[in-house]
């Protein structure tokens, strides 16, 4: 026999069973199953990130409309002036635009981590007996999906405008893969900032301040050879420059081992440094 809390109007209309059914439900989880593995926990959080995209699809705006706009704008704005023709310029520009769009969108990782963290659900996650970085890994893997989407959108626009990757389909895929990998590693910087800074606005502000020089003072739009010497110095050490060079190499069918190695090392360093800092800040909060 199960006793049932009185039914009525309002939200309590559906009864809560508090008799045997309830006890059976409690017995359904008498002992906790073994803790999930780091991978299983990360995947569960990735699933959460994907559900958020499903429920709030507006957040895909920045990886669909924005990259299309960027590609069209820069192709026609600089195309004629810099390389003589848009088709020629696209060979040089497209991998750069792709890198710029994706690197710019990484910024939203910090903002969404910050917004989410202020909510009560974070308290629950932090009291769970799981591998601690899995929450962040989940965010970043969810975002990797967004980056992939931005890449595909830009590649499509490029193909329509006449872009033909010299490396063929394999080269294009490899380039996009490398870019997404870099964006994943780079995003740990934003998760750290999100944990460090006080408000969503300040996360946004600091991200912009870092991203603008990183994107524009690079080899994305123009060949650094045309720049004054002091600027070339900065452009050379700018990680975005190296990533763009590596992606260009892969997509153009002439990968440069040095650039690839550089990106691999940069990724490892970013995750090592900012991943560690993020987790330290996360545990201390």
């Amino acid at each position: 026999m199960s006793t049932v809390t009185e039914t009525g109007t309002g939200d309590a209309a559906q009864p809560v069973a508090t008799g045997e059914a309830f006890h059976a439900a409690l017995d359904g989880g008498p002992a906790r199953p073994p803790r999930p593995s780091a991978a299983a926990a990360s995947l569960a959080f990735t699933w959460r990130a994907m559900l958020k995209i499903k429920h709030v699809p507006e957040q895909l705006f920045d990886v669909t409309a924005f990259p299309v706009l960027m590609t069209l704008m820069f192709t026609y704005l600089f195309g004629g002036a810099l390389a003589g023709s848009t088709a020629e310029y696209l060979d040089y520009l497209l991998p750069g635009i792709m890198a710029m769009s994706v690197v710019m969108t990484t910024m939203y990782t910090g903002v969404s981590v910050k917004t989410d963290m202020e909510k009560g659900v974070f308290d629950r996650f932090r009291t769970l007996p799981i591998w601690r970085p899995s929450v962040m890994v989940g965010y970043l893997l969810g975002d990797a999906f967004r980056y992939a989407m931005a890449c595909v959108v830009i590649l499509t626009v490029g193909l329509v405008l006449g872009y033909r990757p010299g490396g063929g389909a394999a080269g294009a895929l490899a380039g996009m893969g490398l870019l997404i990998l870099f964006a994943f590693a780079f995003s740990w910087l934003w998760t750290y900032l999100a944990l460090l800074l006080r408000s969503e606005k300040s996360v946004m502000g600091v991200s912009m301040m870092l991203l603008f020089p990183l994107s524009f003072l690079s080899n994305i739009l123009v060949d650094p050879a045309t720049m004054p010497g002091w600027l070339q110095g900065f452009v050379d050490v700018n990680p975005v420059t190296r990533v763009v060079a590596a992606v260009r190499g892969l997509m153009g069918g002439e990968p440069v081992a040095g650039d690839l190695l550089w990106v691999a090392v940069a990724c490892a360093l970013l995750v090592g440094v900012f991943g560690t800092l993020t987790m330290r800040a996360y545990n201390r909060k």
Partner: peptide, 8 residues
Amino acid sequence: LLCRLLGH
């Protein structure tokens, strides 16, 4: 989500 995070 919670069930998965608890190892189910």
